[in-house]
C-alpha cells in the first residue's frame, strides 16, 4: 500500500524502524518486526545505518514482505554508484516493495569501516530524480527499460529542528521537485520549532511524518545534543530522565515522553515515524499511551 494513499484517505500514518542484523541470522529482527507490525502501517528497514555494515536492507525487506509485513526500503548513496542503486531499486520492484525512503547517507568515517571509499555518486536529490526516470521507463542514462516501468511511493528525510533551517528547506524543495511524495523527519523534541517548520512547509502540500526517537538515558540525550545533527533534547526532558533512574532504565520515562510528544505533534502533521533503536517492544505501549491506532485497510 502506497503511503500517500493512506494520507489521501485521511489516515494518520504510523511507521517504525528496524535495523537488519550484523550477520545473516534474522530471527531476532523478525521477532521485533512481528511485535511492532500490528500497530503500524509499515516498517522502515535501514541501509547500513550510521555507516555500520549489516545485512542488506533489500534482503530484510523481502523477508518482511514474505511475512506480509509492509516494508519501507531505505536507500542511501554512500555504498553504491548509480548502476548498483538502479539495480537494487528494480529488484525492490520485483519483490513488490512499494515504499522507498531515499537518503544521502552518513559519511563512511562515522561507521565501523572508516577506511572504506565513500561513494556518493548521487545524492538524495539526484537519487529521487533517478527513481523518477525508472518510473518513466528509462534508466538514468536514458536507456529504455524492458516492459512495464516500476511504480513507487518515494519518501525522503528532512530535519525540522536544524539550525539554520533555511538550507534544509532549500533541499526539501529540490527533493519535491525531484519527485519526493512524503517526508519522514529527524527526531523532534521541540514542539514549538516543529510547529514553525510545519507552517513554512505547508505550502509544499507534501505529507510530513514526524520522527520520534525513544530516549533511553540521560547519556543518550546528551550525546545526541552534542553529536547528532538537527537534534536538541531540551533541559526539561533531560531533567525528567534524571528524576527517576529506575523508571528511566526500565524504559517507562522514554515511553511517557514519546507518547506525550506524539499527542502534542499529531495535530500538526500527517503521521509519525518511530525510531525505537532496538526498543521495539516499547512501541505498542508508546502508541497505546498516545492514543493513536494504525487504521489499516
Amino acid at each position: 500500500m502506497h503511503f500517500t494513499e493512506l494520507t489521501k484517505m485521511g489516515k494518520f500514518v504510523i511507521t517504525s524502524e528496524l535495523g537488519p542484523p550484523k550477520g545473516f541470522h534474522i530471527e531476532k529482527a523478525l521477532h521485533e518486526a512481528e511485535l511492532v507490525w500490528p500497530h503500524v502501517h509499515a516498517i522502515n528497514v535501514t541501509d547500513n545505518q550510521s555507516s555500520v555494515m549489516r545485512l542488506s536492507g533489500l534482503a530484510m525487506c523481502k523477508v518482511l514482505k514474505d511475512k506480509n509485513i509492509e516494508p519501507v526500503f531505505q536507500v542511501t548513496c554512500r555504498d553504491r554508484n548509480r548502476l548498483a542503486l538502479q539495480s537494487d531499486i528494480l529488484s525492490a520492484a520485483l519483490f513488490g516493495i512499494d515504499n522507498l525512503l531515499l537518503l544521502t547517507g552518513d559519511h563512511t568515517t562515522l561507521g565501523d569501516h572508516k577506511d572504506a571509499k565513500p561513494v556518493f555518486d548521487l545524492d538524495s536529490v539526484s537519487l529521487a530524480y533517478m527513481v523518477k526516470h525508472l518510473e518513466e521507463g528509462k534508466d538514468l542514462a536514458g536507456n529504455a527499460l524492458d516492459g512495464e516501468p516500476p511504480k513507487f511511493c518515494k519518501g525522503a528525510v528532512v530535519s525540522p529542528c536544524a539550525e539554520p533551517l533555511e538550507p534544509q528547506l532549500f533541499k526539501m524543495e529540490k527533493k519535491i521537485k525531484a519527485g519526493i511524495q512524503f517526508f519522514q523527519t529527524q527526531a523532534v523534541y521541540e514542539a514549538d520549532k516543529f510547529e514553525k517548520f510545519m507552517k513554512r512547509v505547508k505550502e509544499f502540500g507534501v505529507p510530513v511524518y514526524v520522527g520520534i526517537v525513544v530516549l533511553k538515558s540521560v547519556g543518550m540525550a546528551r550525546f545526541m545534543n552534542e553529536n547528532v545533527a538537527g537534534i536538541n533534547v531540551p533541559d526539561n526532558i533531560i531533567e525528567e530522565l534524571k528524576k527517576d533512574k529506575e523508571k528511566t532504565k526500565s524504559g517507562q520515562t522514554g515511553i511517557e515522553i514519546s507518547a506525550r510528544l506524539i499527542k502534542e505533534l499529531k495535530p500538526l502533521c500527517q503521521g509519525v515515524h518511530l525510531m525505537p533503536l532496538g526498543w521495539d517492544d516499547k512501541v505498542p505501549e508508546i502508541l497505546k499511551l498516545s492514543g493513536i491506532i494504525a487504521e489499516k485497510g
Binding site: 538524495s124 528532512v158 530535519s159 538550507p167 534544509q168 533541499k171 547528532v228 545533527a229
Partner: peptide
Amino acid sequence: NGQCGGAK
C-alpha cells in the same frame, strides 16, 4: 544538490 542532514 545541497546540504545533507549531517551538519551540526
